[in-house]
Simulated scan of single mutants.
Amino acid sequence: MWVCFSFILQDPSVTQVTTSSAEPVDQYSPFPQSNDGLATQTTPYQPAVLQPSTEPSPQASAAAAQANLLRQQEELERKAAELDRRELELKSRGSTGKENNWPPLPKSFPIKPCFYQDFSEEIPTEYQRVCKMMYYLWMFNCVTLFLNLLACLAYFTTDATYGVDFGLSILWLILFTPCSFLCWYRPVYKAFRTDSSFSFFFFFFVFFCQVVIFIIQSVGIPKWGNSGWISAFTIIGTNKAVGAIMIIVAILFTICAVISVILLKMVHSMYRRTGASFQKAQQEFSQGVFTNKTFQTAAAGAASSAAQGAMRGNN
């Protein structure tokens, strides 16, 4: 038996197992060691800690909302002020989109220019001469009305019964100076600028009345506030100085009447070459009325009132 056991121990496979340098099973560790030879340390257990709530309080939320509303209100007010400023600027520039330059007033003056006027830029070359002559006629008429006031004042100093002429001369100066500019000079300026048939017809109607007024002023009917020929010859026998002044004013009124007739014929001849017509004037007038905001608002209000009245009648 001992012989058999010795024979088994001498077997190469048994010898290899018994002489192997492998570590015993009880010394085997399933966790790998670190490169520096130190064992891996496990993270110690830490208990969970409750974080405090980050939601704002109701008072803080209300304060933030109020501050946001105030900021939005300030922004809206700033935008509204900017819009108002732009609207005023557009109004000051008029329909042409350019800054008004007439009347030419100083920048420090409280009243700003109301119109934009530039013959070389807005009026065609073939119409500039006539348009300028109409402008010079308006200025000449204003000077004549002022001199008429002085002549009527001198007339009033010689005879107190002619105080009505002096009062009416003040009225004519205040009334005709702006009305003549707006009622016949600006329409003819616009007619030449835009080739507007309606502006031409409006000018012809008003300027014809102006020619009649020039003739009446040059005649000088007493107690009508005009230093014309009749009034001048009436006073020249008693006061030659006042009569001479009134004759000069009568000559100026006569010049205004003659020039106005000539310019009326010149404008009419140019009007016939522009291709304007009464039908175009009607179309321009209807388009201007129906596109006018005031007319649209009034029409909408009238329609609404009529509808409400009909509903009340049905009820």
Rank of each mutant, 00 (worst) to 15 (best):
Q210M: 10
D118I: 07
R85V: 02
F192G: 03
N239W: 07
P187R: 01
E82G: 02
T294G: 15
I245S: 07
I255H: 01
F295Y: 15
N226L: 01
M133G: 05
E75L: 11
N226H: 11
Q283M: 01
S29W: 04
Q128F: 06
K132A: 09
V164A: 11
A241I: 04
T238A: 13
F198N: 04
M133N: 14
C114G: 12
V212I: 14
V261Q: 02
T40V: 14
S260Y: 03
P32L: 12
V249F: 03
I236D: 10
Y135R: 14
L50W: 04
E23A: 10
G94S: 01
E122D: 15
R93Y: 06
G275R: 04
L171C: 04
C183F: 14
H268F: 07
V258T: 06
G237L: 07
D36H: 13
T291F: 02
M270R: 10
M266R: 03
L88W: 05
L50A: 07
A299I: 09
C131H: 06
T291N: 15
I259P: 00
K112Y: 13
M139E: 11
F140H: 09
E75S: 08
P12C: 06
Y116C: 02
N314Y: 08
K293N: 11
A80V: 06
T294Y: 11
Q33M: 11
V206Y: 10
F208A: 14
A300N: 10
T234H: 12
I255W: 00
T54K: 04
P32K: 12
T194K: 12
S218Y: 01
T125P: 01
Y28F: 09
N148T: 06
S269C: 03
A154P: 04
T161I: 08
L171P: 00
A310F: 12
S180T: 06
F204N: 13
K79I: 10
T19Y: 00
M270C: 04
E23W: 01
A81Q: 10
F192C: 05
W102T: 06
A299K: 14
Y116K: 08
V164S: 13
M246Y: 04
L9M: 11
G288C: 01
K132M: 15
E89M: 03
N148A: 01
T18K: 03
T158V: 15
K265Q: 02
E23L: 07
R273I: 00
L9V: 05
S286T: 01
K280E: 08
L137C: 09
Q41M: 14
T297E: 12
W229M: 13
Q72L: 14
V258I: 13
Q128S: 11
A80E: 06
D36G: 14
D11S: 03
N100I: 01
A191V: 01
F140R: 09
A300D: 13
L105F: 14
K132H: 14
L105K: 08
C4T: 08
V219T: 06
I230D: 07
G301L: 11
L105P: 10
S20K: 02
P124A: 04
V3M: 05
P103V: 10
L252P: 02
A151I: 03
N292F: 12
S227L: 01
P47R: 15
V261P: 00
Y45C: 08
N314H: 10
F176G: 03
Q73S: 12
N101E: 12
F156I: 05
F31N: 08
N315V: 07
